[in-house]
C-alpha cells in the first residue's frame, strides 16, 4: 500500500513575491519546494515573523496558493498587530523561518458532481483560493464563491477564482461593492436556489460569520465545513493551547486541537460559544 507521506518541515524559505493588495492585505510568495510538495488546501504554515524575543511566538497563516511544480507557496495576510506588521517589512530575496505544512488538509471532496460553495469573510477568503484550485484540479466545476467584507478594500482579490472560470459574488457591509449586507445573506439566497441537498459549503472568516453560516446550512440540511481560528503557541499539537470545543454524535463535549485535528471541522460538531 502506498501511504501518503505527510512530512512536516521547518525550512528557511526565500521570499519570491511580496505585494500589497488593496489597502489591507499582503500577498507573500515563498520558495519552499519541500513544503509545497505535500501541502494541501486547508493546511497552514507557522511563520517566525521576528528573530527577537518579542513578539515571541510564530504566527499561523493558511495556504492561499500551492504550486508544487514551481515549489512556491503563497499566503494572503492582513496586518493585525506586531507580528504581521514586522512581516510586512520583509523584501523579496529575504528568508523566513517557516514550519509546515501543518494541520489537516481538506480531503472531503469525494462526493463527485455536487455543488460546492466557498464562503470567505475578509482575509478568511484566503484558504478558499487554494481550495478552489484543488477542487478545480479534481475536475469539479460546480463551484461558486461568495466573498464578504466590511468594505470593498477588504475583499480579497477575485483573480484566482476568475482565472479558474469560477463565478464570484461579493457582499460588502457598506455596499461599496456587490450586495449590501452580510455575505451570509448571499449564502442563504444561494441555498434557496438549489433544489437538491447534495451541496457542500466551505467557510472561513470571523467567528460570527461562521456561526451564522453553520446555522443557515443546518436549517437547510446542507453540510458545512468551517476553517476555525485559534490562538496558537506550537502549531504542531504539543501544547494543547489551541483548544476548540466540539460535540460528538452522542452529544459528548470535548476539546480538540485546532492545529492538529483541524483547522477544518464539520460545523455541526463545533460548539459555538
Amino acid at each position: 500500500m502506498l501511504k501518503k507521506e505527510r512530512r512536516k518541515m521547518r525550512v528557511r524559505a526565500q521570499i519570491v513575491e511580496h505585494l500589497k493588495i488593496g489597502r489591507a492585505y499582503y500577498l507573500l510568495g515563498l520558495h519552499a519546494p519541500e513544503i509545497a510538495r505535500t501541502a494541501e488546501a486547508g493546511q497552514f504554515i507557522n511563520i517566525r515573523c521576528a528573530e527577537t524575543l518579542d513578539p515571541l511566538l510564530r504566527r499561523p497563516f493558511s495556504f492561499y496558493s500551492i504550486d508544487r511544480d514551481a515549489g512556491i507557496i503563497k499566503i494572503l495576510y492582513e496586518v493585525k498587530g506586531r507580528g504581521t506588521e514586522i512581516l510586512s517589512k520583509y523584501k523579496v530575496g529575504d528568508f523566513l523561518d517557516i514550519m509546515g505544512p501543518l494541520g489537516r488538509g481538506i480531503d472531503e471532496l469525494d462526493n463527485g458532481g455536487i455543488q460546492v460553495i466557498l464562503l470567505g469573510g475578509g482575509v478568511g477568503g484566503a484558504p478558499m483560493a487554494a481550495l478552489a484550485e484543488k477542487l478545480h484540479e479534481c475536475g469539479m466545476r460546480a463551484i461558486r464563491v461568495l466573498l464578504g467584507a466590511s468594505t470593498m478594500d477588504r475583499l480579497i482579490p477575485f483573480d484566482v477564482f476568475k482565472s479558474l472560470g469560477i463565478e464570484v459574488s461579493a457582499a460588502t457591509e457598506d455596499g461599496s461593492l456587490g450586495y449590501k449586507g452580510f455575505v451570509t445573506d448571499l449564502l442563504k439566497k444561494q441555498l434557496e436556489k438549489f433544489e437538491r441537498k447534495d451541496c457542500l459549503v466551505y467557510a472561513c472568516g470571523p467567528k460570527e460569520m461562521l456561526k451564522a453560516a453553520a446555522e443557515i446550512c443546518r436549517n437547510k440540511g446542507v453540510k458545512c465545513i468551517v476553517l476555525m481560528d485559534a490562538l496558537m503557541a506550537c502549531g504542531v499539537g504539543a501544547c494543547q493551547g489551541c483548544a476548540l470545543k466540539v460535540r460528538d454524535e452522542d452529544g459528548v463535549e470535548t476539546y480538540v486541537r485546532v492545529c492538529t485535528e483541524g483547522p477544518n471541522f464539520d460545523a455541526r460538531e463545533v460548539v459555538w460559544e
Binding site: L53, D54, P55, L56, L57, A230, L231, M232, A233, C239, Q240, G241, C242, A243, L244, K245, T254, Y255
Partner: peptide, 13 residues
Amino acid sequence: EGNPPPRIIETPA
C-alpha cells in the same frame, strides 16, 4: 479536558 479557551496569550518575551 482542560480549561476553556483562550488558553494562551503572548506577553513580552
